[in-house]
Nucleic acid binder design. Structure first.
Length: 560
DNA sequence: TGGGGTCCT
DNA sequence: AGGACCC
């Protein structure tokens, strides 16, 4: 059936939606703290504001742009509320919550379309970019709805540009309807607002996303996109990064072309003359394929596909960028903090995705190395298996110890970081990758269905507000099917009295996995070790962790 | 300039 | 393993 459709009307263009959640970190933080809703809020990592809400943006008048120092922002807006964003857990979870909801909505919509036309459900690839952006290829779904005859031929939201291609216009009209409905659904379900850009390529969809900014959407009709692109800075093109820019600039200076590359038009003037230009740019960049891609982007040509990201990440890492780390004691302490966070995340990951990592990577950077760091990969110590697969909390300390030992020996052997040597590290990170499914895990009743994961979270968020219709969460799940894994009555997981102890403070942990993780995270934050429990030693621990005067000044302003 | 991620070579 | 890119 679908083959016939494609033969009759070959798909010459696609319909792609780019979603971008509005000031994501700030929105997530405020969602969890409703009393901050009308206050100017910034999210702080180390001494930088990484995001702010719109109240802060209007009140500080441009002083809280992306990566501005907290001190600068506070001068412009002393009433700024600073929230610590160094632990990404809430943002990572909210991001997963959003994509999960997107997939569920699309699957539901695809099933409806399939039922009407008696075909198999159209697939929409979803690709995440960072925590707050998602690309969706809705071509098949839109075509299916057009064929079913129910789709209104009207644009939803703003429209930029024009096109003479009637079929494309219809396709994008339907895509804009889908986008709007999906956005409404997401806003209702997650209380997070988002923008959308709709076009026939990832490039243009992404450019459109920023055209009408918070909580709105724009369709980019592409007939004159090339003219439009010429006026932009080439850096505005996704794929034209810092390195590409620098290499071209260096080349122009070397070759006496002092014009520079302010716009895409400048780049095309230098390299836009066909095969020869591609070859010349390829030589400059050291990669002809990349040169071709860049030049295509400059002309508005982008055939890159939306690659489905899947639910599970391919790597998990925990980093600490430090001003200065010069003693083994300091290395050891920082390492244990990052490793504990990594292990804690691997446990949740194992529960959600039934898998465990086989590689451990240790990354580090020395002072003076600029942005370049070094990383080594080694086999992941086997102690991680019981953490990921059987979810035994008592296995956590052993895994941490083992990984710590391994990481320290990596640092010693490959970086010369050891007792008696002088060094100054500015970055320490541990990561897990090369995941393998653990079959022993499956069917043992320990896995958590991903939708169940959010049902638990939604209840907590909801009870924090006022009481609403109790059955909301199940009925809101658009799939309608809850494919819960049947669970045997496992002591480790379901009974709080299972005597689980925190690897940091050794106090008894209650509640479910998430609550336990939260406790461990809190413990980590205060750097409170088992034998270091007195208030005095906590203070010492904080100091030796590298807390400086600037940080302690801001920490007074941090909202918990 | 954080604390993450992806893919390609 | 490193480097490019993305947020």
């Amino acid at each position: 059936m679908s083959i016939r459709r494609k033969r009759q009307r070959p798909v010459t263009s696609r319909a792609i939606i780019a979603f971008d959640l509005d000031c994501f970190y700030a929105s997530v933080a405020i969602r969890a703290r409703p009393h901050l809703k009308d206050k100017p809020v910034v999210i702080v990592q180390k001494h930088l504001c990484v995001t702010s809400n719109y109240v802060a943006r209007s009140r500080a008048k441009g002083a809280v742009q992306k990566m501005t120092p907290v001190s600068h922002a506070l001068q412009k807006c002393p009433e700024l509320v600073c929230i610590d964003g160094s632990d990404l857990t809430p943002f990572r979870e909210a991001s997963l919550e959003v994509v999960t909801a997107i997939r569920a909505w699309l699957a539901d919509r695809a099933r409806e379309a399939a039922a009407m036309s008696n075909t198999k459900p159209p697939f929409c690839a979803c690709q995440r970019l960072g925590f707050d952006e998602v690309f969706i290829d809705v071509t098949e779904l839109a075509l299916s709805e057009i064929e079913n005859g129910g789709a209104p031929f009207l644009f939803r939201g703003h429209v930029f540009g024009r096109t003479d291609d009637d079929e494309l216009r219809r396709l994008l009209m339907v895509a804009s309807q889908l986008s709007h409905q999906l956005r409404e659904y997401l806003i209702a379900k997650t209380q997070l607002t988002l923008c959308a850009g709709i076009s026939h390529s990832k490039q243009l969809a992404k450019l459109a996303v920023n055209m009408n900014k918070p909580n709105d959407q724009t369709v980019f009709l592409p007939d004159q996109s090339a003219e439009y692109l010429k006026t932009l800075s080439p850096r505005a093109l996704q794929g034209f990064g810092h390195g590409t820019h620098d290499k071209i600039i260096t080349w122009t200076k070397h070759n006496g072309k002092h014009e520079g590359i302010e716009t895409v038009a400048d780049v095309l003037q230098l390299f836009g003359d066909g095969q020869d230009g591609i070859r010349r740019l390829g030589t400059i960049l050291g990669n002809e394929q990349h040169a071709l891609h860049i030049l295509n982007l400059c002309r508005g040509v982008d055939h890159t596909e939306v690659l489905d990201s899947g639910d599970a990440p391919k790597s998990i890492s925990a980093e600490d960028s430090c001003r200065s780390c010069t003693t083994m004691e300091d290395v050891s302490r920082r390492l244990v903090v990052q490793i504990t966070r990594l292990v804690s995340r691997l446990r949740s990951d194992g529960q959600l995705f039934s898998r465990r990592p086989r590689a451990l990577s240790v990354s580090y950077r020395f002072r003076g190395d600029g942005f370049v760091g070094t990383s080594r990969s080694v086999p992941m110590p086997t102690e991680i298996v019981s953490v990921c697969c059987s979810q035994q909390n008592k296995a956590i300390p052993k895994a941490i110890e083992s990984i710590k030992k391994t990481a320290l020996s990596v640092l010693k052997e490959h970086a010369g970081v050891q007792e008696g040597r002088t060094f100054d590290l500015t970055l320490l990170a541990v990561g897990a990758s090369n995941f393998s499914d653990s079959d022993s895990f499956k069917g043992n009743g320990l896995t958590t269905d991903i939708s169940e994961f959010f049902i638990g979270k939604a209840k907590r968020i909801d009870s924090g507000k006022k009481k609403s219709s109790g059955t909301l969460h199940h009925s809101q799940t658009p799939t309608g099917v809850s494919n819960h894994v049947q669970r045997t009555d496992s002591k480790e997981r379901s009974t709080p009295e299972a005597e689980v102890r925190c690897p940091i403070c050794n106090s008894k942990l209650s509640g479910d996995n998430l609550m336990q993780n939260n406790h461990i995270d809190k413990c980590l934050k205060s750097s409170c070790t088992k034998r270091d429990k007195s208030a005095g030693s906590v203070k010492r621990a904080r100091k030796s962790l590298g807390t400086r005067t600037l940080d302690s000044y801001f920490s007074k302003r941090l909202q918990r």
